[in-house]
């Protein structure tokens, strides 16, 4: 089949504003959306810039807005796009992030927020001789959250991020959940200090856009709610 591909292009050296450009691209139903972009880049216009690496939904590089929804280009099939929205496919960079060029956003802010929540194991005692053990039940608490590949689809799908770029966002706070609820971790207090802030947890209004966007189908809103309850109870107990 033949598809019309519309891409939001922006070259900071030449353009004042981003603009849409249109391309005709041949496609098979089982092609990925990423292959449409690569066809444009390799056969039509080599100046098109995009991030991608694994092409298998592992690295998280190619989150972008496809037909208005945040998705991983490599993990979406042409047949599903055509079935839902017809034979025009639009590609834009993730919303509410500074654009470096074309589909590439500046992720520095996103990863700053990630570092803010201390996404590493914090422990009080000395390191054990062998690995730190965890029971299957303890692991089940965090397993869903450990699947995050830091693609940013969720954070840039969230109206709270759109309204306030300082909002920590679901990806960072999901990491906070992942470590805070890890049975081997002792850093709950430090991390709760970060997320229990005006630009943190309380700006999550349970809108569920993050859940819809997540390519790994992580139940993000649920885990953020658990983190809110933890922050609220730890507030109550420290005050008491």
């Amino acid at each position: 089949m033949q598809l019309t591909i519309e891409i939001k292009r922006y070259n900071p050296d030449e353009d004042d504003e981003p603009h849409w450009e249109s391309y005709e691209v041949p496609a098979e139903p089982l092609d990925s959306a990423l292959s449409l972009l690569l066809h444009v880049k390799w056969h039509i216009d080599g100046t098109l810039s995009l991030r991608k690496s694994c092409a298998h939904g592992i690295c998280g590089s190619d989150a972008m807005q496809i037909n208005g929804e945040n998705k991983l280009a490599c993990s979406v099939l042409v047949q599903d796009l055509v079935e839902e929205d017809g034979d025009t496919v639009t590609f834009a960079p993730l919303p509410s992030a500074p654009v470096i060029k074309d589909l590439i956003i500046d992720q520095s802010r996103f990863f700053e927020k990630y570092r803010d929540v201390k996404p590493w194991l914090i422990t009080d005692g000395p390191a054990p001789e062998r690995e730190r053990e965890q029971s299957p039940e303890e692991h089940a608490m965090i397993e869903d959250a450990t699947k995050c590949i830091m693609c940013g689809a969720c954070t840039h799908a969230c109206p709270s991020t759109w309204a306030d770029p300082d909002y920590l966002g679901p990806a960072a706070m999901l990491k906070a959940y992942r470590y805070t609820f890890d049975s081997r971790d002792d850093g709950a207090e430090e991390r709760l200090d970060v997320v229990d802030s005006p630009d943190g947890l309380w700006k999550c209004y349970t809108i569920f856009n993050c859940n819809e966007a997540c390519p790994k189908d992580i139940d993000i809103t649920r885990w953020l709610s658990a983190l809110k309850r933890k922050a609220a109870t730890s507030q109550a107990t420290t005050k008491a």
């Binding site: 709760l192 200090d193 229990d196 802030s197 005006p198 947890l201 309380w202 809110k228 922050a231 609220a232 507030q235 109550a236």
Partner: peptide
């Protein structure tokens, strides 16, 4: 700086 809204959120 924990400027908590936890109680208000709960309420």
């Amino acid at each position: 700086m924990a400027q908590t809204n936890a109680l208000n959120w709960f309420l």
